[in-house]
Amino acid sequence: MRIVDLTHYISEDMPVYPGTEGPKFAPANSYEVDGFKETLMTMYTHTGTHMDPPAHLFAGRTTLDQFPITQFVGTALVIDCSDLKEGQHITMEYINKQKDKADKAEFLLFRSGWDRYWGTEKYFGDYPCIDGEVADYLVKSHKKGVGLDVIGLDPIADTNLTLHKKLFKDNEIVIIENLMNLHLLGDDLFTFCALPLKHVDADGSPVRAIALLHD
């Protein structure tokens, strides 16, 4: 079995969603004074490689801590759409190339290749996004989740978060954003794990996302 890390590092100088403060790390205890090291970490719940639940946008909907742990582990497939240019959309054409496997997968991870721009201004640009038909497919096929190697499911300019709302309004699904290394996962089914922190009323959480490949 091969394990692939799909998670970006959290650091004070990491990219964060425009308008959001980056994480802060402050010394809390030291070897010299306290005999051990401890750090106070402050960050938003949607920092770095992270997960959104329906409660991110809709009051009274499911928070991450209300999901069973099985929501965060399952069979996954990477959909390669790395040929797309800025402003273009991920359509059903990409899913239909692997439709049998896509139907079986509990998670679909869309590889745009945008993770190569992590740490640059272009990462916040006009990255490829799924279209409405793909969003409908994710809902109708009852996926556990959808993952992307970009900063958001919606275009950066869509402050209404239209696609988020379409997925979250009436469905038990999670969205994982800011993934990396999807190019290492091939075109076959594998096991995907993205585990959020277990805190009360979680509207989102950083995750450690990994792939388990049974070569």
Rank of each mutant, 00 (worst) to 15 (best):
E133T: 15
H56V: 00
L109Q: 06
T62G: 03
G145L: 13
S141P: 08
L161M: 11
L148N: 00
P54V: 12
Y123T: 03
Q66V: 04
A59F: 11
L138E: 04
L148T: 05
L148S: 06
D100M: 12
K85L: 13
K104R: 12
K104Q: 14
T63F: 03
D115N: 07
W118V: 00
F110Q: 00
K85V: 08
M92E: 11
K85C: 06
D83K: 14
T120A: 05
P53G: 11
F67D: 11
K85W: 01
A55R: 12
P68G: 10
F124T: 01
Q66F: 01
K101L: 14
S141D: 09
F67H: 11
R116W: 00
P54W: 09
G87K: 07
K122Y: 00
P68L: 11
D158P: 07
P54F: 10
Q98E: 14
V146L: 07
E121L: 01
N96C: 10
G132C: 13
V73E: 12
E86H: 05
A59W: 07
F67W: 13
E93S: 15
E93Q: 13
G152P: 00
A157N: 10
I79A: 08
E106Y: 09
V139A: 09
L108I: 08
K97T: 04
L108N: 02
L163F: 09
L84S: 05
E133M: 14
G145H: 10
Q98L: 14
G152Y: 04
S112F: 01
E93T: 14
Y117L: 02
K99Q: 08
W118Q: 04
L77C: 07
D100W: 07
A105N: 12
D52P: 00
E93R: 08
D154L: 07
F58T: 01
W114E: 03
K104V: 04
P53S: 12
G125W: 05
S82M: 08
L57T: 02
L57R: 05
T70L: 06
K140A: 15
K99Y: 06
D131K: 06
T62M: 14
Q98A: 14
S82C: 11
G74P: 05
K99C: 01
P128K: 09
V139Q: 10
G60I: 08
